[in-house]
Amino acid sequence: MQNPDEKPSGISNPSMKDVARLSGVSKMTVSRALRAPDSVSPETLARIQEVIESLGYVPNRVAGNFSLNRTTAVAIVVPSLGNALYAATMQGISDILEPHGFQLMISDGGYSLEKEEKLIKMYVAERVCGIILHNTNHTEKARKILLNSGIACVETGDLCANPIDMCVSYSNFEAGLAMAEHLISLQYRKFGFASLPVSWSDRLSERRRGFVMGLERAGLSMDPRLVLEVEPGLESGAHALGRMLDLGLPLDAVFFAGDVLAAGAVIEAQRRSIKIPAQLAIAASDDNELMQNIIPSLTTVRFPRYEIGSQAAELIVNRSLGVPSETRCLNLGFEVIQRNST
């Protein structure tokens, strides 16, 4: 019998049998502990739970229903279903999955790593054949569950130095850097920056880090008072620009790490009769349809969101067919779009 104190290592896609062996009990006891915890002793239950935690084991809800131990479902978790940015990615995924007979399951992670972890655990328990995550940072437990599950996983929010499995994206750092270089080439020198709270997403912190690096390479810097974190929405963008202007500091260009915030800033500038770009330049990122049609049209960074979705889905379909991927990470890049706001 396995020593209960032995530490598990290198177990991929752990099973109930592994939990039983490492806990020093039978599979039936593990099953009872999962289904009716009160039916086993507290000491045994604690030992089983410790092994489950260390393995990242998730009970299989569909084991009796599918001979291949996998469904034909692919799950995607995005930070917010209310954010239209993710629509193109989901469409790209759907357009690839549907002809192959796969179903798409969509969940809202709510900018919460803990909620994402719960969703990952649920999808692993349902034995989906693939999981697509917009986040690239996760709780340690979520990462362990995914690594041990054997389920294909694609991260899409940023290029990963160490992806869980596969990654299809662009570099947020390089995007921020490119926008800084673009604005500097247009002779702007006094900058502000606004984004959603960077604690919500490493994508935002990387975009800001790239922008700051671009300024530093040109011998420039931003006053810390002109670097803001705000809540989502048009009004938040307007409020952010208002706060910057009310400081009375030199300011000739502001980069908003989000289109909706930038659109709100345009509205605020118009309220104050500030001419864009003659008196103040405004740049954005993401390039949704609003950016092309707002007056003035906004300079922005365009990301290939549809292509990211379709490529991520292709990787999962190929994995299910036994076709190996040529690379773990696909860099689809981005494009700085010059328009009338700068």
Rank of each mutant, 00 (worst) to 15 (best):
S185H: 11
N293C: 06
E231Y: 01
V168K: 06
S39A: 13
L183V: 05
Y111H: 14
V30P: 06
R143P: 00
A262N: 04
S67E: 11
S320N: 14
F102Y: 15
A278E: 15
M90K: 07
R207L: 04
S94K: 14
V317E: 11
R339G: 00
L22H: 12
L332K: 03
E117L: 03
G150I: 06
R319F: 06
V40A: 04
I131S: 08
S41C: 05
Y57F: 14
E307W: 05
H138R: 10
E50A: 15
Q187E: 15
N340H: 12
Q338L: 02
A63V: 00
N83T: 02
A218V: 00
H182F: 13
A175R: 02
S112G: 11
N69W: 00
D158G: 05
I52M: 13
C153L: 12
F191D: 10
R209V: 01
N172H: 09
T44K: 14
T300R: 07
D287Y: 00
V19E: 03
E117T: 09
A178C: 05
R32H: 04
P304T: 05
V30G: 04
Y123D: 08
V168Y: 08
R207P: 03
G176T: 07
L241Y: 06
Q103F: 08
M1Y: 04
S112W: 01
P324W: 09
G248H: 05
E307A: 15
P163R: 10
K121N: 01
P14L: 07
E174T: 06
S320I: 00
H138Q: 12
K275Y: 02
S285K: 08
S31P: 00
L247M: 15
S41V: 04
C129A: 14
L298M: 15
I184L: 11
Q91D: 12
S199R: 11
E140S: 15
I282M: 10
V74Y: 07
Q2K: 13
A283S: 13
M291D: 14
A152T: 14
K121P: 00
Q91S: 11
A313F: 00
P59C: 05
S199G: 09
